[in-house]
Amino acid sequence: MLSALLVMAGIAIVLGAVLGYAAIKFRVEGNPLVDKIDAVLPQTQCGQCSYPGCKPYATAIAAGEADINRCPPGGEEGIQKLADLLGVDFKPFGGDTNAPKPKSVAIIDESTCIGCTLCIQACPVDAIVGAAKQMHTVIASECTGCELCIAPCPVDCIVMLPIEEKISNWKWKYPVYTLNAVETDRAAEAALQRTNGRAPG
């Protein structure tokens, strides 16, 4: 009995020492978790999460202060990635968070623009070029679609346009599975009823 206790205590001491040593030896400076979370976030810097940017939101998540479902540009997939990274359950969008929108870019109506530079100051990723009293332009490829430039514009000349599907950015769609006959039958029935309803007589 005594020897068993001694063995266990010995093991505990050795393991404790190893752990303590490892904690010092392999200490990581900074917070790698924040960077990992930041890498998952879409970097729109839109502030829809109520934090002033992606990095502050990442810091807040890492500190356990923010939920993972506060980033609409990341979409549900972004939430899933965060959930996987942090080992927590998926959480759908809800409450005061906006629903995700299709990806868009800002377009400045160049005939209305008065060259006030307010949008340039608001853009978090320097995607708007122009100078005072000169017309401004959005560099479409650099715009993250954060919409932060819309509110400051005094003449409301900025609109968000959803990114158009072109051959260059077209994606193959998920193959449609026709297996679930039960559901498709229902859908077909519903469609039939709709057309029947509309048909004259």
Partner: peptide, 8 residues
Amino acid sequence: ADQARERH
């Protein structure tokens, strides 16, 4: 996103 982060 990485480019946006850099610019930000």
